[in-house]
Design a protein around this nucleic acid. Structure first.
Lengths: 409, 409
DNA sequence: AATCGATTGGAAACTAACTTAACAATCACC
DNA sequence: GGTGATTGTTAAGTTAGTTTCCAATCGATT
């Protein structure tokens, strides 16, 4: 009944670390994993094709597939005909071998989806939350889970993995949620206990922006690089860092909490926010933009979106506020470059994805960063966090299912 | 004839990446590696002990050791007697199986050492450089290598790996040295070509502070953690980042170049430095401390060391300068925490290791960082960079030697 | 319509590597 | 000098994977 977070371990301790000795069975384990990966990626596929892709011999592929079929992870889905010779059996992942529930808890909305092991979404739903406190919010999440399961036509017990994208981070050393910011009461031990109680042992809690970064890796610009930073600027500020294809949480779970960058020179900073969500968040989040615009005398500045719209219309004062915001974000991106130097920076969030903002940030970056990596704006939308949770849950499900197979064979 | 940098690849692409299929031979390869690791760590050791440590059976251990012995990587070094039963043969790494040359090129000193495969240093030397340009400097390095080889009693051709710790970074995309800062002419293509010409195909170029971080990982505080940041503050400012036990260079080699952090509020900044070595370097390096002290009116401020000494003696103005420096360094450390959240921060360099500085930085950190990791001052000295180069070269030598064995068997 | 040729899937024989079990040889200690 | 622990090897058996060969199948060609 432990909450596990993030990037599936899976690392083969490198060299000095402490790799352990290998038995012949390991070969089988590796090869089944490899085959499974190919089947996942290349849809229905024949034994011969798999043999070609992996370099394994036909008898070996056959034996391994039998084993995978016995354990229920793959099945024959049809025959390929139309070519000379006998019809080839086509294998694919058995979608019913597992189901993943992804949830996104925000201040205003709860979103969720259920996907099967093949990755297709069986049910999806967003609701506006009415909850006043943490416990009510958890109840709403549980209700959402039930609704989704019903719609997907499965039992809750069939879920192999549940992933909750949430503000705040899970600190494995303290076994607690911390830095939950705007979500009141969410960082209490009771919240964590209640979540575990409702969602069981397979619950995995992922920072919402980290989840979005995973989605970006699977569906967005992160597909073709193996290290990138997803920088989200909107209601709050945060980052998800993917290095060597793996999301990094850091040793206290705070990797990417760039709201706490020690930049305090912003014009719109609110000291109350600075304590709770970090100095940089207070200086550069949407609320700070609104404050700065109001102070500068821009009219009709109820939301950051309106400030950006005014700037786009040619309001020079609003444009100055936007430029200042771009400078702040560029500084944050510059720190990320100097510290980890990723292949790519993806800007996300309401402000990060605003038209023209990317260019403004890049312009500033050019003058301050030691190198200029690719910088792109995210093209994903409101379902990003849920998609990331599903992807993370799928990954983890695969790991555990394959592991289980290997042991039981 | 390529310059390779840093952390040996060796990663088994995780999951989706592209792991390839396994043959039975892989088992042997893994097991030989594991045995070798144990022999390296646990000195002369018997077959039976190895069987116990690895969990492999005695016959398997015997067979693998024979193979390793045939390829010249290990040899029997003696017999253990004194216990009942036949004398056990003790195996150890054959030191002569390879030699590593580590070099540290600085503005004032060149340092170097040669170690054998077992890690013991066979020769060590530091010389003051008289070189006026890059080519002369390379000649001095080559001379140093010859002297060291003579002293160690080996031929230069016996070197399996040469590692040069140098200011600046190697950018694999441009195949060039960049950001070489104070070392004039060091970033020209001709320098790189000349280095390759002199030191051959096994040359590996490592940023000097990254090399120090490797030393810290092998000999210093980094031994018992698997992610830490070595932050060096002295003549220049830089960082070496070790995550999951592996040094990270980033995709342009600039990971850790925190001299380029966009902090410009320091009082001692010099605009010429800012362009060349980064805004933060210009604000917080030793020269900046001297400038700040001079401006504040501290007397006898020819070096940063004297400013720190004055502060320690009770000079309140000097103390204020030191406190300001601590604040700047704390901000840099805070950015590292918010971006990657390592287990540990190690402070190094003349300023970083100054008495009392650690405490001053921690005091500031407490008020700004979202979490406070372990922070320690390095206890390593002037030979750190060379030690790191040797460690990196040993690692790489092991990788290639073991790889070669596996193929040739 | 019959044959040809490509292709599939599996069976047999062989290789690589590990394990367990048994055994002969050795050495300290009583 | 006998006893018991320990070492290192040999033999037999298991898990995996490879190569080679073959029967069965199905579209295409004659």
């Amino acid at each position: 009944m432990t909450v596990v977070t993030g990037g599936v371990a899976g690392g083969v301790g490198d060299g000095v670390g402490g790799a352990s000795a290998a038995r012949p069975q390991l070969i089988r384990e590796i090869n089944e994993r490899v085959l499974l990966d190919h089947i996942r990626r290349s849809g229905p596929i024949s034994r011969t094709e798999l043999a070609g892709l992996t370099g394994l011999s036909k008898p070996t592929v056959s034996a391994a597939l039998s084993s995978l079929e016995r354990s229920g992870l793959v099945h024959v889905t049809g025959q390929r005909t139309g070519v000379p010779g006998p019809a080839a059996s086509l294998y694919e992942v058995r979608p019913e071998a597992g189901y993943v529930l992804g949830l996104d808890v925000g201040r205003e909305f709860l979103r969720g989806a259920i996907s099967d092991l093949s990755g297709s979404v069986r049910a999806r739903l967003s609701v506006r939350t009415k909850a006043g406190d943490a416990m009510a919010r958890i109840q709403e999440l549980a209700d959402l889970a039930v609704t989704l399961a019903t719609e997907a036509g499965i039992q809750l017990t069939q879920l192999t993995q549940t992933v909750l994208g949430s503000p705040g981070v899970y600190d494995p050393r303290l076994d607690a949620l911390t830095l939950t910011g705007r979500l009141s009461g969410w960082d209490s031990p009771a919240t964590l206990a209640a979540l575990r109680d409702r969602f069981g042992s397979s619950l995995m809690i992922e920072n919402d922006i980290d989840a979005a970064a995973i989605a970006e890796r699977v569906h967005g610009h992160g597909r073709n690089v193996d290290s990138f930073a997803f920088v989200s600027v909107g209601t709050g500020i945060g980052m998800g860092l993917v290095l060597d294809g793996k999301l990094r949480h850091g040793s206290h779970g705070v990797a990417g909490e760039i709201g706490y960058l020690p930049f305090t020179e912003g014009s719109g900073s609110d000291p109350r926010d600075a304590r709770k969500r970090g100095g940089f968040d207070a200086s550069a989040s949407a609320a700070a933009v609104v404050r700065a615009a109001r102070r500068a005398g821009v009219r009709g500045t109820s939301t950051a979106e309106k400030v950006f719209a005014a700037a786009a219309r040619g309001d020079v004062v609003a444009a100055a506020v936007v430029a200042e915001e771009a400078l702040l974000v560029a500084k944050a991106v510059c720190t990320v470059i100097t510290v980890v130097d990723p292949d790519l920076i993806v800007l996300g969030g309401g402000i990060g994805q605003a038209p023209g903002f990317l260019e403004a940030v890049v312009k500033q970056l050019r003058q301050m960063a030691p190198v200029l990596p690719d910088v792109k704006a995210s093209v994903l939308g409101t379902e990003t966090v849920v998609a990331g949770c599903l992807a993370a849950g799928l990954d983890r499900s695969w790991q555990s299912l394959v592991g289980r197979t290997a042991n039981s064979v």
